[in-house]
């Protein structure tokens, strides 16, 4: 079971992440009243990028990108995918820290590219991260304090018996705050600051071409998968569906249905995020930080106080 999980969940995340990229382009096109590219367009792009002859700026330019992609895959192993969670040691804290590998790798890689656009992109990326980490940490601490555990698997399991945390009263505010910062975590508009194509030539990606860009694209896909699945796991109960799947827990069909339910939840959250992405322009970085440190932080902070008081 664990071995299958280790092999399957990264592949599933890869497929789903790239599917989401394609879907987002298609849906955005439809919102724009366009026909749009085929849903497989990201796959075509990645195949093309792999066959291109790119340039490299040095060893860290290569290794940083490899580290970032490997880091993303490792985080996926620590996230419960339905009932399947290959690794769980260290709990939510380990996930929080493993999630640093990916941006650090990208930052090292494009740091060595010695391109000012890349550096500005990285600086914005880290500032944006600082912006959304403040509410995010309040939210995660509220959840961990409420369930009195640091294990994400445990949090999902408790939710399957007591109901989604989004529906439970003490965590409602935290859930709202998480949804408010979700676009910032995913890096979609209005928080598309770090990779702004028109302003800073796609930021960190400016010197990436060929296979480097392919890796960066895959990493982006995985990053979106991670951001959304963390939300679904923390607040939408992971695989649980109003107790319907309860009788077949731990059977093969239970696991498969659990994953399907989980992915459908992710899809809904993702499409909601896309609608936000479609209608908003881009913030400036200081506007983004001001926003993130105002409403989401307020909600998350009150949420944490409520959780502490209820306990």
């Amino acid at each position: 079971m664990q071995i299958w999980g280790i092999i399957l969940s990264p592949l599933l995340a890869l497929v789903v992440g790239i599917f989401f990229l394609g879907l987002s382009r298609k849906i955005m096109a439809r919102i724009h009243w366009r026909y749009g590219p085929p849903i497989t367009q990201p796959v075509i792009d990645i195949i093309k990028l792999f066959s291109q002859k790119s340039i490299s700026h040095g060893t860290i330019f290569d290794l940083g990108l490899i580290l970032s992609l490997a880091g993303s895959f490792v985080v996926i192993l620590f996230l419960p995918l339905g009932q399947m969670c290959p690794l769980s040691s260290g709990g939510l804290l380990a996930i929080l820290y493993l999630m640093l590998l990916a941006p650090l790798g990208i930052a090292l890689s494009s740091g060595e590219a010695a391109n000012p656009n890349s550096s500005i992109g990285i600086s914005r990326k880290f500032l944006l991260a600082l912006g959304y980490e403040v509410p995010l940490l309040f939210i995660l601490l509220a959840v961990m304090t409420h369930y009195n555990t640091i294990s994400l698997v445990e949090i999902v399991r408790i939710q399957s018996t007591t109901g989604w945390s989004f529906g439970s009263l003490p965590l409602l505010l935290s859930g709202i705050a998480y949804f408010l910062i979700l676009p910032a975590i995913l890096g979609i508009r209005p928080f598309e600051i770090a990779g702004a194509g028109q302003e800073i030539s796609s930021g960190a990606n400016a010197e990436f071409g060929g296979k480097f860009l392919a890796f960066s694209t895959i990493q982006h896909a995985l990053h979106e998968f991670i951001g959304i699945s963390l939300f679904v796991n923390l607040f939408l109960g992971g695989w649980s569906l109003f107790g319907i799947l309860e009788p077949i827990t731990n059977t093969v069909w239970g696991v498969i249905l659990g994953i399907i339910v989980f992915l459908i939840k992710m899809l809904i959250v993702f499409i909601l995020g896309l609608f936000i992405n479609a209608v908003f322009p881009r913030f400036r970085i200081e506007q983004a930080i001001k926003y993130l440190w105002k409403w989401p932080t307020l909600f998350a902070f009150i949420g944490l106080i409520v959780v502490v008081l209820v306990k």
């Binding site: 366009r34 749009g36 796609s202 990606n205 990436f208 071409g209």
Partner: peptide, 17 residues
């Protein structure tokens, strides 16, 4: 809608063909 042909603008020449 050039995107239906897979034609999209990119930011830098490194990413273009």
């Amino acid at each position: 809608d050039a995107e239906r042909f897979g034609v999209i603008p990119v930011a830098t020449p490194r990413q273009a063909n």
